[in-house]
């Protein structure tokens, strides 16, 4: 656990889970935004899992999913939770710990 510093390690692999409910516009937007951010910041070292709660409702329980869409950073640890369609890129980066800056902002 302690070897995994959040930000820099080049060999870190990212597993991101995106919870959606069917093909709603918000879900589609979120997926598009996520894809773009990953391409930009994590090229080649990430994996996105899409979990459709309409198809697998029981899967939402473990991650305590209430809002849709919700993005979970499963790896690297610690687990992070981000809600919304990810259109506010700055906030997404903060939430994913990809950009250490802007911590003071709310």
């Amino acid at each position: 656990m302690d070897g995994k510093t959040r930000n820099s390690s080049e060999d870190e692999f990212w597993i991101l889970k995106l919870y959606v409910a069917g093909q709603s516009p918000k879900s589609v937007t979120a997926f598009r935004n996520l894809k773009k951010i990953c391409e930009e910041h994590l090229e080649g070292k990430y994996q996105i899992k899409i979990i459709d709660l309409l198809k697998n409702p029981q899967l939402g329980k473990g991650d305590q999913i209430l809002a849709i869409p919700t993005l979970i950073r499963q790896l690297p640890e610690p687990v992070k939770k981000i809600i919304g369609d990810l259109s506010n890129t700055e906030r997404v980066l903060v939430g994913l710990d990809l950009q250490p800056a802007k911590k003071g902002s709310f």
């Binding site: 029981q58 939402g60 809002a67 939770k81 981000i82 809600i83 919304g84 990810l86 906030r91």
Partner: peptide
């Protein structure tokens, strides 16, 4: 503290959970 809000969302997850 765990939740970062990054745009449009709804509580469909909760609905699905209650429904289930």
């Amino acid at each position: 503290s765990e939740i970062e809000e990054t745009g449009e969302h709804d509580l469909e997850g909760l609905f699905i959970r209650i429904n289930q």
